[in-house]
Design a protein around this nucleic acid. Structure first.
Ligand SMILES: [Mn+2]
Ligand SMILES: [Mn+2]
Ligand SMILES: [Mn+2]
Ligand SMILES: [Mn+2]
Lengths: 227, 227
DNA sequence: CAATTAACTTTGATAAGACAAAGTTAATTA
DNA sequence: TAATTAACTTTGTCTTATCAAAGTTAATTG
């Protein structure tokens, strides 16, 4: 069995992998993501490579093998199912579940995870809108764009929040921009680098403005998200 | 913060402590309870003693300090609240929650534990009838006797099961001897070393026989247990 | 193209936690 | 009391995971 350290490395290698699948993840990025010094990342990756969970090319970087990717997806599945459990069943706020899930993801047994999945009725998305890999290790791809590149004026909805820090999520709470929220992007000002959007609520609508850099953290969908 | 290893040692020192409070727990008993070799227990206990969580007297044994006992009780509280959560909220069988709780007890945050306690409405007993220490580290003492020494013929109820192995608990399930079950001890046969008792159910009563050694694993109460 | 620099790897050290095997203590038996 | 034995401690070694600091590579810049 992979240690919790190895599980964390594999998960970060998966999450930090470059968009271009032919590229390698550099050791610098990995060590920053895991939160260790570069030398530590190098020696750990060598060990994980001996276990055939990653390919490692000195001075190029690291890449998951199929076995490593399956393991990474299992950890991610545990993380996201646990987050959803903490929110939906235990009533924690979605801004405060990440750190607990970061630990719990390494100790929840398959049996317990199956129960959690059953109680939540086999959900497809976690509280932040991140897709939950299936037990078989398949990630359903969302076709999303960000608040920066989605069409103006059309009714869309928030699908996913990419910044999961507690402070940012509390700001998102205040704006009412949780996953599922209905919005219309009103305008973009390239000189001011701001986006203005209308949050459509049952009682009243709310106008929200944010910078391009923040707008990039929201993924939206034109069509309704299917549960 | 105490490592998970230290938490496990402290908990076992608490659970295995001799009934007579002036006695020390021997290293042999401790190493067996933790599941390590005697030498490992000695060196770990020395380290824990340096942290003033136990007193250690070579060749006499080990004893918790007040600080160590508080920590042990916090671990025990986490363990038992988690077990109850797994049974009551996630619907696992009480015979299969122990191993998950053994891991989860080390990673559940105070915040999450408070939520669990709230959802379960501040329970006093876990699924096996073991008392849950309060957040302040107080254990409510039950005045129980075992099926071996309780009075014959009187209506009593099962309060607690001391053997928590999955196989034994499944046997207990079959007999319907879960905590709270109402019974009457019919007879004891000292030659055969057996106890016969009546399990009082809503539909029909059931006669169960067991050896003295098994009967000792059941604690019972004459008065109804208060929640 | 040489010098500089950023990114990476190697080396040496440390800490926690474990085991095996050898050594010690103290109780038990003869 | 001497020999035996059970229980315990010590010693030496191992594994995993980490850092700091020194060394290396390769890209960038003058
Ligand atoms: Mn983690
Ligand atoms: Mn998430
Ligand atoms: Mn434990
Ligand atoms: Mn229990």
């Amino acid at each position: 069995m992979a240690s919790r350290t190895i599980e964390n490395y594999l998960k970060q290698i998966y999450l930090s992998r470059p968009a271009d699948e032919t590229q390698w993840l550099t050791m610098g990025k990995l060590s920053a993501a895991v939160g260790v010094t570069p030398g530590t990342a190098t020696s750990m990756v060598r060990a994980i490579s001996d276990a055939h969970l990653v390919e490692y090319e000195p001075r190029a970087g690291v890449r998951l093998t199929p076995a490593g990717e399956q393991l990474a997806l299992h950890v991610l599945r545990r993380h996201r199912l646990i987050e959803l459990l903490l929110v939906q069943v235990l009533g924690l706020d979605w801004s405060e579940v990440h750190d607990d899930a970061e630990e719990l993801e390494h100790v929840v047994s398959d049996r317990l995870l199956a129960k959690i999945d059953e109680i939540l009725q086999h959900p497809a998305f976690d509280p932040h809108g991140d897709p939950i890999p299936t037990a078989g290790g398949v990630v359903r791809r969302q076709d999303c764009c960000t608040l920066l590149d989605c069409p103006l004026g059309e009714p869309t909805s928030i699908a996913r929040i990419l910044d999961q820090s507690a402070e940012f999520l509390q700001y998102v709470n205040q704006c009412g921009l949780l996953p599922g929220a209905e919005i219309r992007v009103a305008s973009r000002n390239h000189q001011a680098q701001t986006v203005e959007l209308m949050v459509i609520k049952s009682d009243e609508n709310q106008l929200v403005a944010m910078s391009f850099s923040v707008a990039e953290k929201f993924l939206v969908q034109l069509n309704e998200r299917k549960k």
